[in-house]
Design a protein around this nucleic acid. Structure first.
Lengths: 238, 238
DNA sequence: ACACCATGGACTGAAATCAGTCCTTTGAGG
DNA sequence: CCTCAAAGGACTGATTTCAGTCCATGGTGT
């Protein structure tokens, strides 16, 4: 354990707001993009819908969108059949990358090691519909066809797809949030072709286990897969 | 799966704000109280501290506190050595108890079955300090000495204590949130002395396993324990 | 008694946020 | 061409939230 005392009331009385609405909206959208939910070329829902779903006024949402456009993530087009289009992630390397501190790193890795194997097991045990199976396989083949630029996002997307099959909204949300944090971590280290191939083999194996309904195997494969990334990270970030 | 399509963008683009600051602040405080973090008789931190930690202005915090006082959860005293004291939870049964819908019920139970066994295992595997051990045992004996009125809160507190030993802030937060939801569920069914005794035996066994560093056992005991509550709930709520 | 001071109580003006309304753009279809 | 409709763009006034400041209360310790 760290500095925090046990029973520290402030671990529950954490911030109600992590910034102003405007900033949180940006973060939210950025997470959705980084995590591969909106592939480049696709467009976001209309502002009015989006604002409603985000629980934010359209004015505030528009400020956030304008900022993201300036930063090069979006292109906004007017007129009928216009909309907010997602662009290729600006290669502009994470500028102010504030290296995540070691405690947070540990937290992310531990937490995802809790969530993702469980998600894989649940997914395998679930009674999957045809569309569910297709969705998973679709995410897998997208990932296999990815280049360096698109790999991280599609990888995240694939892992989230597994959580989606679990059928627990809370789990989906938790996996998504954690994946966004993992991606931030991964951006600090290089993407090696060897690791990439190995990962893809694991992705395939996990998918197969899930589609065969083999929960135990899906879980243990996922544990191995995560351990691979974790040790990679430990190696590069010391 | 349910209505939500796979890859539904709105599962990530969820509300940035779940209400106004004032309401969220009330919810936050109420959760901390219900979950046993602030036992009756104790007082909350000074308003100025609390406001800062919650990331909310003191004005807004005070509105929330005033509301909670009106509702009978708090008593606010002025002067030196004054403060905001927690009262016995108003027996005022959950008034507008909006029975949780079946999908949410399933979600809560699934999610906590993911989190809590993992937390127990991590706790057992961790290198526990003396104060950590004391903390866990303290929560356990508080729980054993609980009466009907205080049982739920102390039960929650005990389960959260286990998560605290895991050393992962994200896991602590997730367990806490989920526990608050479980408590809401449990408030819909009666508290039977027989179940209560059985639960206490399980709590003791789990604690023992954790303190002995037996992760596998702690985990499997926790799974059994949760399954007990889950089937109880399934029985009463049909 | 008295001074102290940590704590809650109250007020003010600025800033953020919202809901509602109306304007502008632009591709599709007739 | 012209019209329509679905999208973004812009404005307004009300409401919420904030940071900062000063006041009031009432145990403690001299």
């Amino acid at each position: 354990m760290t500095a925090a005392d046990f029973g520290d009331p402030y671990s529950v009385l954490r911030p109600v707001r992590s910034g102003n609405t405007f900033e949180e909206t940006i973060e939210h959208l950025l997470q959705a993009i980084r995590v591969g939910l909106f592939p480049p070329g696709q467009k976001l829902p209309p502002e009015r819908d989006l604002a409603e779903h985000l629980g934010v006024s359209r004015a505030t949402l528009r400020e956030a969108l304008a900022e993201l456009q300036t930063a090069g993530f979006l292109e906004i087009r007017r007129g009928r059949y216009g909309g907010t289009y997602i662009l290729e992630a600006p290669n502009a390397a994470p500028q102010g990358v504030q290296h995540m501190d070691p405690l947070q790193r540990r937290d992310v890795l531990v937490f995802r090691a809790v969530l993702e194997p469980a998600a894989a097991e649940l997914a395998a045990q679930a009674d999957l519909s045809a569309s569910a199976r297709e969705h998973l396989q679709g995410c897998l083949s997208d990932l296999e066809g990815a280049d360096r630029a698109s790999y991280r996002a599609r990888d995240a997307r694939f892992h989230i797809a597994i959580a989606e099959l679990s059928g627990s909204p809370s789990l989906i949300t938790a996996v998504t949030d954690t994946r966004a944090r993992v991606s931030a971590l991964l951006d600090e280290i290089p993407l090696l072709p060897a690791n990439l191939e190995h990962s893809n083999a694991q992705h395939l194996a996990i998918t197969t286990a899930i589609l065969h309904g083999d929960g135990a195997r899906a879980k243990s494969l996922m544990i191995d897969h995560l351990e691979g990334t974790a040790s990679l990270l430990r190696g590069f970030l010391t």
